[in-house]
Amino acid sequence: MASGRIEVIAYAGYRGEECPRAFVVGGVQVDVMKLLDLWTEENHFSKRRRRCFRVKGSDWRTYVICHDETGDEWSLV
């Protein structure tokens, strides 16, 4: 499975932080069935932050998708 930028359908909770609900991989929409893990990474040199989510998809695969808060871009890792 290739990594790179992906389209994500997200929900912003009461704190305004986005959480993925579904994403498109290879033209196919995969719904997020369960959030398995969540963490934040920060590059101390560039000060870029990204929030990463390990999720179980509706296709029963496990994915790691990240949201770059600075560029407002989602990627599959």
Rank of each mutant, 00 (worst) to 15 (best):
M1I: 06
M1P: 10
A2I: 12
A2K: 12
A2C: 03
S3N: 06
R5K: 14
I6K: 13
I6F: 01
E7D: 11
E7G: 01
V8T: 03
V8N: 13
A10T: 03
A10Y: 05
A10F: 05
A12P: 04
G13C: 11
G13Q: 12
Y14G: 05
Y14A: 11
Y14H: 15
Y14I: 11
G16L: 08
G16D: 04
E17Q: 15
E17T: 09
C19Y: 10
C19R: 15
C19F: 10
P20G: 01
R21W: 01
R21N: 03
A22E: 03
A22T: 11
V24S: 02
V24M: 02
G26V: 02
G27I: 07
V28I: 04
V28L: 12
Q29K: 10
D31L: 07
D31R: 07
M33Q: 13
L35H: 09
L35S: 02
L36G: 10
D37W: 09
W39C: 08
T40V: 07
T40F: 02
E41V: 01
E41Y: 06
E42R: 13
E42C: 05
N43F: 00
H44L: 15
H44A: 15
F45R: 13
S46L: 00
K47Y: 09
K47S: 05
K47G: 02
K47M: 08
R48S: 12
R48M: 07
R50Q: 13
R50L: 04
C52F: 02
F53G: 07
R54I: 02
R54T: 09
V55I: 07
K56N: 03
G57A: 08
G57K: 06
G57F: 08
S58A: 11
S58W: 11
S58Y: 14
D59F: 10
D59E: 06
W60A: 15
W60M: 11
R61N: 11
T62S: 12
T62D: 03
T62F: 02
V64F: 06
V64L: 06
V64N: 14
D68G: 00
D68A: 01
E69Q: 12
E69H: 13
T70R: 03
T70S: 09
T70V: 05
G71Y: 04
G71Q: 00
G71V: 01
D72N: 11
E73P: 08
W74T: 10
L76W: 07
L76N: 15
V77H: 15
